[in-house]
Amino acid sequence: MARRRQEDEEVELNLAPIMNLVMILIPLLLLSVVFEQMGVINVSAPKLSVGPANEQPNPDEEKKLNLTIGVSVSGFSLLTSDGKLSPLSGCDNPDVAICTKKGKDVAAILSEVKSLRGKYDSAPNDANRVFIQQSDDKLQEAIEAYDWRRLYNTLIEMKQKFPDEKLVNLTASPNVPFEMIVKTMDTVRYKLESPNENGTFDTDEKFQLATYKETSAGDAPYAELFSDVALAVAN
C-alpha cells in the first residue's frame, strides 16, 4: 500500500526556502527604489560674449529672430534682432521688459533663501533639515513673484512672426538660482492650449491650469515654442 501511494503522488517541490528568499529581497529592493522619475533638459554650451556676430549678415538670408531672454531679480529682459524690447505696460523699470509682480522684492526673497539654506550648510544635522524645507518654500515664493504669463504671451506673439524659429539664448544675473533657469526653460519649451484665438492668456489662473498643446507634427510630444536652449553669460 505504501508503494502504491508513492507511485500515485507527484513529487512536490519544497518552495518554502525560495519564498523566504523572495520575501527578504522584496522589502530590500522596495527600499532602494526611487519613485521620482529623473529627466534631463538638453542645452547648448554657454557663449561667453553676447554681442554682434563677426560674420556679415547675408542679405539673401531670411531674417532671424535671435531671441535672448535675460533673467534678473527685477524681471525678464528680452533681446531680439530688432533690438531690446521696451518695458511692457505696468512695468516702470527701464532695464527689463517684463517686471516681477508688484510688491514683491525678489532680491530680498532670494537672500532669505540663501541664508536659510546656509543655516543647514553650516550645521548639517537632522534638526536643521527644517531649514531646507523653509528655503524651498521661499524659493517657491520667488518663482511665483515672476510674471510667467506675460513672458509666455510675449513669446507666443514672437513665435507667430517667426514660426520656424526654435532657438533661444538664455542668460541670467549671477545670483539667480538654478531652479529659476529650469523654470524659464519649462515655460518657453511648449505651447499651451489657450482659450484665446492668438494663443495668449488673460489671467494667471487660466495660464496655470492650461494643458500642453498636443500636436501630430514632428517628434516632440507637444507643439514646440522655443525648445532649443543655449545658455549664455552676459558680462
Partner: peptide, 27 residues
C-alpha cells in the same frame, strides 16, 4: 536648486574648455 547661475555658468564654461560641448541638466 539654489546654486547661483554664476557657478553653473562657470562649470559649463570649464567643461567647454575640456571639449565637452553638449549639456544635459538633470531634473
Amino acid at each position: 536648486r539654489t546654486i547661483p547661475y554664476r557657478l553653473v555658468a562657470e562649470v559649463m564654461y570649464t567643461a567647454g574648455q575640456a571639449q565637452l560641448s553638449k549639456f544635459k541638466f538633470a531634473v
